[in-house]
Design a protein around this nucleic acid. Sequence first.
DNA 1: AGCACA
Length: 432
Amino acid sequence: MASVSSQPQFRYTQPPSKVLHLRNLPWECTEEELIELGKPFGKVVNTKCNVGANRNQAFIEFADLNQAIAMISYYASSSEPAQVRGKTVYLQYSNRQEIVNNKTAADVPGNVLLVTIEGADARLVSIDVLHLVFSAFGYVHKITTFEKTAGFQALVQFTDAETATSAKDALDGRSIPSYLLPEHMGPCTLRITYSGHSDLSVKFQSHRSRDYTNPYLPVAPSAVEGSGQAMVGLDGKRLETESNVLLASIENMQYAVTLDVLHMVFSAFGPVQKIAMFDKNGGLQALIQYPDTQTAVVAKEALEGHCIYDGGFCKLHISYSRHTDLSIKVNNDRSRDYTIPNTPVVNAQPSILGQQSVPMMGHPAQPYNGSQAGWGTGPPAVGQSMPMQMHNNIYMPPGTMPQQMAPGMQFPSHNTQQPTTTLPTYGSDRTQ
DNA sequence: AGCACA
C-alpha cells in the first residue's frame, strides 16, 4: 500500500505524448474550440473537454506525436500564451498516450432523443404537449412514452441527428412552458440524452405512442395500457402485431426469476439473442428477443399463461413487444446480449438470493438421482450455451423443486423419467 | 493551473 511517490501526479517535465493536457480553460469549453486551438499544429483526432472537478480541463489528441511536440514547443517559446476566448490555457503532455472517451449511447448523437420528464406531475404531461414542444425544432416522426424507474420518459424521433441535437441543446434542463400545461401542474423539467434507437416501432396511435408519419395507423383501443400488451378488438379478433421480441410479465412471483432462468425457458424455442429485465408497475417484466418472428410466435403460444414453477408461481403473460431490436448497453444480471461473444459481464450474479430460504445456493445440494429433475442438477444438454453460473444460480421454491420443471427443461439426454410439469414439452427440435 | 471514471 506504500506506492506514495513512485508515480507522481505531475512533474515539471512530462514525457512526450500525442495527448496534451490543458488546464485553466474557460467554463464549458467546446470540442470545436479545442480543435481550433490544435489545428495549426496538426490533425486533432480526439478531444475530451469539461474534465476535472471544475470541468475546466481538457485533452487534445493529435494524430502524430510530432504534432503534439510542435504545439508544446511553440507555446514554450511563444510570447503569446495559448488562449481560448482570451483566457490563457496551460498545456503539457498528458501522462496518458490516448484519450479514452467512455461514450455511451446517451452521448452518441442520433436522431432519437431519450427524454426524461422530471417533476411531481411528470406523468400527466401528454404526448401532444411533448409533440408541440419538440416540433419547434423540426418534424417529429414518432413519439413513444413509457414509465420506468427513471420516471416518466419519452423517445422522440426526428429526421436526423442534427435536428435532434438542436432540440436537445435547446431543451435539455429546461422546463416545459407552464402555459402548455394544465394550471394545477407543477414544473416539469426535461432531461435529454440521445437514444440508441434510430427508428421507433409504433404499432398504434394511442395516448402513449404516436407515429406522425402514418396518420392511418390504427388507433389502439382505449383499454390499452402499457407497451406491447395483447389487445382484442370489438369483434374479438386479435389486434396484436407479431414481433420477434416478446414482452413477458411475471405474475405471482413468489420466487426469484433470474436472467438465466428466462434464458433457459425461452431458449427452448430457438436461439435467444437478447434479454432485458426491468421492473414495471411493481412487477417484473422482461423483453426476450429472437432472431425471427416465427420463433417468437411459437414461444408465445407455448408459454403464455404457463408457470415457471408449479403451484401457480411465476405465471408468464406474454405479448409481442413493439421492439424489433433491443439495445443492450451493458451485460449484467438484468440484461444480456447473447449475440456478442465473450462480453464481460458486469456485476454478474448478486447473492441476495441467499436471504430467502434457498436450498440450492452454492452448489447443488441435491445431486441428480435419476428420479428427480430440476434446476439444481446442473447444466443439461444446453450446457455450452448457458452462463457458467447456471448451476449455482438457479433455485427452486423450497420443497417444490423435485416436482417442478420449467418449460424447455425437459432434455432427453437428461431425464429418463419425467416428473409432472406445469408445462408441455417443447424441446424436441433443440440440438445444442 | 496540475490528468478523465463509467
